[in-house]
Structure formats: structure tokens, C-alpha cells
């Protein structure tokens, strides 16, 4: 379980971007995080990745403080997918996927069964031998997600994984992630803007505002509540 208790998230101490972030993320659950653009979702995720140091508070993973993990240990516990910077276009898809081996220092620590499960689930079989530069944005997005998953971590944090995907692709990816959470007992935290709120099973919806991280419960007017929260900022 990841426990966050962040009083302040900031770039500059005088102007915190977000305050009062308290939450628990457990395995076997999926967390959708909503929030206005620029509110700090990516920054929060980067903090979890150890890429952002500006925060006041505590983050623990299974009881151990985040900062006590070495980079490699953290890479074996948490996997991230960000909207990346430009990347080397001559990666072949299967080579890019193999980057997931890196935290394990071995060339083939990825379980073959799991690997084919992920590749199939994200419809990547046909693309394995293509170069990244030949892919569409949506396809590349899926490749990134696949690499992230192949890191074989318990906790997976995704920053806007549905960006660049058409409706069908988005549905399938959503479905696949839910399946993953349920069948492989993973914990997935993702940020999104899509409004099809889903409360079934172990899916949770949270909204990040500048003053808090609120969880929404399943009710008739949960969508309105969400919109209200979002507009409040």
C-alpha cells in the first residue's frame, strides 16, 4: 500500500500548488484521478517517482519511506508512464519493451507468459518489429504502457494514459487495465479527463484540487459533484 500524507506540494515554497493530499492506494484497486490541467497531477506523480523534491509531508510504500528506497529498488516497486519527452525514433518496439528489464539487471527477467498477455491485451503483436517513428501517437502510447507494465511492479502509475487514443482504443485500454488490476492484483493509479465514471468493482474516483485530494463515492450525482469540485478552482 502506498500512503501519502502531503501537506504541501510546491515548486517554490512560498507558493504551494496543492495542499492537503492524503490518500491510501492499495493493491487490487484502480484509482482514477481527475483534476484541472496544471493542478499538480503530474507533479504528484513525479513526486512519487522521486523526480520532484518539493514537498512537505510523508510518502510511504509498504511502510518504508519513499526516500529510503534506492533508485533501483524503487523501479522494482513502482512503474511510471509519463507523457514523454522526444525519444530516439530508431527503437524497435520489441527493443523498447525490453527496457523494462533494466531494473532487474538481467536480460530476460520478464515472465514470458505475462509478456504475451500484455502484448495481446494492448494489440501490439503486429507492431513488434516496427520502429517507434513509424507508430501513430496512440500506438506509441500503448507501447509506453506495455513497457511500464512489463516492469513487473506491484504499483503502476500512469499520467494520462488515454491521451491520443480514439474511443475504441480507449475503451480497450481501460478494460485491459481493469482486468490487470483484478486478475494480477496490481495497484494502478492513473490521471484522466474522461468522464465515464466507473465505480464498479474496486475502481475509485478521486479529484485533485488545490486544497485537497477528495474521493468520490458512488451516487447519482457523483458526476455533478465532480464537475463542481473541478470548477471550484
Amino acid at each position: 500500500m502506498i500512503e501519502i500524507a502531503i501537506e504541501q506540494l510546491y515548486f517554490d515554497k512560498a507558493n504551494p500548488i496543492a495542499t492537503g493530499l492524503n490518500a491510501c492506494f492499495t493493491k487490487g484497486h484502480l484509482f482514477y484521478i481527475y483534476g484541472r490541467n496544471g493542478i499538480g497531477k503530474t507533479t504528484l506523480f513525479k513526486t512519487l517517482a522521486g523526480l520532484h523534491q518539493g514537498f512537505k509531508g510523508q510518502i510511504t510504500i509498504e511502510g518504508i519511506t519513499l526516500s529510503d528506497f534506492s533508485t533501483q529498488e524503487r523501479a522494482r516497486k513502482l512503474a511510471f508512464m509519463f507523457q514523454t519527452e522526444t525519444v530516439y525514433p530508431f527503437f524497435k518496439v520489441h527493443e523498447y519493451l525490453e527496457l523494462a528489464n533494466i531494473p532487474y539487471d538481467k536480460n530476460d527477467s520478464i515472465n514470458d507468459e505475462f509478456k504475451s498477455y500484455v502484448i495481446k491485451g494492448l494489440d501490439l503483436e503486429k507492431h513488434l518489429d516496427r520502429y517507434l517513428k513509424e507508430l501513430s501517437q496512440g500506438q506509441f502510447q500503448k507501447v509506453k504502457l506495455a513497457t511500464c507494465l512489463l516492469q513487473m511492479t506491484d504499483y503502476i502509475i500512469l499520467d494520462e494514459p488515454f491521451a491520443h487514443l480514439d474511443l475504441v482504443q480507449k475503451e480497450r485500454m481501460n478494460h485491459f487495465i481493469q482486468e490487470l488490476v483484478k486478475e494480477k492484483n496490481k495497484c494502478v493509479i492513473l490521471s484522466t479527463h474522461h468522464f465515464d465514471l466507473d465505480f464498479k468493482n474496486n475502481n475509485h474516483t478521486l479529484c485533485l484540487t488545490s486544497t485537497q485530494l477528495t474521493g468520490l463515492t458512488n451516487s447519482e450525482n457523483s458526476k455533478e459533484k465532480l464537475i463542481q469540485l473541478l470548477c471550484a478552482d
Partner: peptide, 11 residues
Amino acid sequence: LAGDVMAKTLG
């Protein structure tokens, strides 16, 4: 080659 952020998250 995949980028600084990606490299860091990979440990």
C-alpha cells in the same frame, strides 16, 4: 535514449 524521465523511472 528513451529520455531522462524514462531512464530514472527505470532505476
